[in-house]
Each structure stands twice: as structure tokens, then as C-alpha cells.
């Protein structure tokens, strides 16, 4: 009896060390089922070109979803990420076109994108921590502000890159895998380490679970929350680099539209509780993959694009219902 318990314990803890908490088993199973079903339903699905495309599509919102995971674990929410993609993209292309040396321009562009993303994240974070505005309202406002500024700067027109090297970034491959996918996976590993192996990660969970306990435990609650929004902003920066370089341009009126919903959906499907305090990066990665594959399948099967929202919505509802049942 005790031996069995010890074994279960050891299993649990080794599973934990991988970050594969048992709570993400459900989304993982869902993903496997989906993969099997998809490959049976369409012969094109397992085509390597198709898979590569799906992965690339997933990585844009997946990168953002990883950032949003931190905000949600800390007990917040970020609705502004979609609009932020547009604004950061515009700033990035302006910087890119302002520098003549193409290599130098890309370096500057990347720095501007990551920096401005992080800065907008800090702005969101300050509204929440210093302004004491609920994250939902604060980021609802900045969602509107970021999009508006992006539209104003460009007069709602598309900004096109004049840099000959830029498209190689989002459109390029390394070892046969698209660069945005590499960015997504490397970010996921880094984010996992940040969440499970650093003080910031542990403190973020404590703050999200019970900010009062965190305060009494000497945790700098405001700094930690500010950090989570900054991470989300920097992730938006990374996503904007990948997206705009793939397209070689950015259109402020439709870049990143509804990305916030895709990101939050990925986080929720991945088993992170919207109430905060707990979460998993791998869950979010799986959640993003599930959403991407469903989209792809609906396209391959010729389902009306008008019905795709219905399917996506249903998947989110099922995921939340399964989570809720488990908590009972």
C-alpha cells in the first residue's frame, strides 16, 4: 500500500519536474485524438507542407499566448495584445525603413519591436498596479488606444518594408522548420523554466492564488504583476517581428485582430485557470496547437468560414467544462 503510494508520489514528482502536471493530460489527450482524427479525415493533413503551414500559423498567436499565460497566472488578463501587435508592427517597420544598412536595420528593428512591446506591457502593468484599475478594464482601454495610434500613424494604410533581408526572418527555415516555429518552441522552453525554476515564477503563482498571502510573505506583489504584463508585451513584440517579416508589411487595420481571444482561448484550453495561481506553459502550447489544427481541418474539409467561430467557441466551452468538473 505504502509502496504503491510512494511510487505514485515519485511518478507525480517526476511528472511535475517535466512540468507535465497531470492537469495538462486532458488537453494532451485531446490533441492526440485530434491529430489521429485529422489524419483520417483528410489525406492532405499529414502532408509536410500543410503541417509546416499549420505550425507557422500557430506560432504567431502561440507566442502571444505564452505571454498571456503569465498575466493570467498572476490573476490578470490582457485584452490589448492584438492591437499591440499592430502598433508594434508599425513602429518596427518605421525603424526598419529608417536605417539604410539592411543588417543593422534588422537589429534595430528587432530591438524596437521587443522594446516597444515591453514598454506597452509596462504601461498596462502600471495602470493595474499603480492606477489600481482592474486588468480587464485597463487593457480594454489600451486595446482601443493601441489600435487607434497605429491607424493614425499610418493613416490606416499598409506599411511595406524596403529591407531585402527582412522576409528571410519570418519566411525562412532552419533544419526544415520555419523560424517562427523555432521562436515559439524556444520561447516555450524559456517560459517554462521561468515559471517553474525561478523565484519570479513561484512568486507569480503565489500572487495569483492569493495576493494578500503573498504580501504577508514579503513578496513584492506590484513588481511581480508588472513583470507579468511586461513579459506579455515583449512576447507581442516577438510575434510582431515574425508576422510582419513573413508578410514583409503590416496593415494596422487587420494585423492581430482577435489575437487576444485566440491567445486567451489557448491558455484556457491548456488548463490554466482564469482565476490565476496556477498554470502551465506546455498546456498553452498544446492549446494553441489544438486551435490551429481545428482551423486547418475546417479549411481542408471545406467547412464554411462562417461556421469556424462556432467550432472554436464550442471547443473553448468544452475545455472549461472539463476543467470545472475536475475541480469538483
Amino acid at each position: 500500500m505504502t509502496q504503491v503510494k510512494n511510487m505514485a508520489d515519485r511518478f507525480n514528482s517526476s511528472v511535475n519536474r517535466l512540468g507535465l502536471d497531470l492537469t495538462i493530460l486532458a488537453p494532451l489527450i485531446a490533441l492526440v485524438v485530434l491529430l489521429v482524427a485529422s489524419s483520417l479525415a483528410s489525406e492532405y493533413f499529414l502532408n509536410s507542407r500543410n503541417l509546416t503551414n499549420v505550425m507557422r500559423q500557430v506560432s504567431y498567436t502561440g507566442i502571444i499566448a505564452i505571454g498571456v499565460t503569465f498575466v493570467i497566472i498572476g490573476g490578470g488578463i490582457d485584452l490589448s495584445v492584438g492591437s499591440m501587435v499592430a502598433l508594434v508592427g508599425v513602429l518596427l517597420l518605421y525603424a526598419l525603413n529608417a536605417v539604410t544598412d539592411p543588417v543593422m536595420a534588422i537589429v534595430v528593428g528587432i530591438l524596437v519591436a521587443l522594446g516597444s512591446g515591453a514598454l506597452f506591457g509596462v504601461f498596462n502593468g502600471l495602470l493595474v498596479t499603480r492606477g489600481k484599475i482592474t486588468a480587464f478594464i485597463a487593457t480594454l482601454a489600451t486595446m482601443s488606444i493601441f489600435r487607434s495610434v497605429a491607424l493614425y500613424l499610418t493613416d490606416a494604410g499598409e506599411v511595406v518594408s524596403r529591407n531585402p533581408l527582412f522576409p528571410n526572418l519570418g519566411g525562412g527555415y532552419w533544419l526544415g522548420v520555419p523560424i517562427p516555429v523555432w521562436a515559439f518552441l524556444i520561447l516555450a522552453v524559456a517560459a517554462h523554466i521561468l515559471l517553474f525554476y525561478t523565484r519570479f515564477g513561484r512568486h507569480l503563482c503565489a500572487v495569483g492564488a492569493n495576493a494578500q498571502v503573498a504580501r504577508y510573505s514579503g513578496i513584492r506583489v506590484r513588481t511581480v504583476i508588472l513583470g507579468s504584463f511586461t513579459i506579455a508585451g515583449a512576447c507581442v513584440g516577438l510575434s510582431a517581428i515574425m508576422l510582419s517579416s513573413r508578410l514583409n508589411s503590416i496593415s494596422p487595420s487587420d494585423a492581430g485582430v482577435l489575437y487576444e481571444l485566440d491567445a486567451i482561448a489557448a491558455v484556457v484550453i491548456g488548463g490554466t485557470a482564469l482565476s490565476g495561481g496556477k498554470g502551465s506553459i506546455w498546456g498553452t502550447v498544446i492549446g494553441a496547437l489544438i486551435l490551429g489544427i481545428i482551423n486547418n481541418m475546417l479549411n481542408l474539409l471545406g467547412v464554411s468560414p462562417y461556421l469556424q467561430g462556432l467550432v472554436k467557441g464550442s471547443v473553448i466551452l468544452i475545455a472549461v467544462l472539463v476543467q470545472y468538473k475536475r475541480q469538483q
Partner: peptide, 23 residues
Amino acid sequence: GKGLVLSFNLIENITLLSLKRYI
């Protein structure tokens, strides 16, 4: 309300103040 993070396990609660020493 102020002492323990109820959703944390025993280990995470016990080392919450002293975490630095385990890093």
C-alpha cells in the same frame, strides 16, 4: 487569508519565504 497559499502544496508553502536558499 494571509498565511498559506491554499492551492500550493506543502513544499511550495514551506519554502515561500526562504526560496532564495534553494536557488
